[in-house]
Amino acid sequence: METDRAKLDNTIAKYGNDRSLLLSMFQDIQREYRYLPKEAIKYVCEKLNIPVVKGYEMATFYKSLSLVPRGKHTIHVCMGTACHLKGAPGVLEAFERDLKVKRGGTTEDMLFTLESVNCLGACALAPLVRVDEKDFGKVNQTSVKNIIDEYKRGE
């Protein structure tokens, strides 16, 4: 945990010990660990002299933060209006069927976390799926398997 603390200190310093940038600090930590560890929340709050509960409030309010470890790849199925009208609910169900997890869940092998998101702003390509940083446009239920396979093959 020593090195981790050094990293956390760096993150705090990067944002100039500014309490109002707690969300940014948490986002950086989340990127590092793929979730926001409890110890990290406690440590950062104590360093910044904020009650721990304020950090916990933040971690549970903002959707981009997660208190449980996430899979190596995060699949975001866009549920924006355009995507909804063009079959996104079916696409989400197909992912749930194929990955055997519900939305918000992580596969047992920790490879995928399945999330829905309320619009990624690429509505012309609806239904849209984002895996990590990559977008897949005009996805349908039958192409879901190909997307999953693409990432499974990469292992």
Partner: peptide, 26 residues
Amino acid sequence: GVSAIGIIGKGPEKKISPPFREASDA
């Protein structure tokens, strides 16, 4: 002046709780 409990989560599932839903040091 201790902030031992907070308003946790968002929307209809919001809840009053100490951090991490466990006994709080504060």
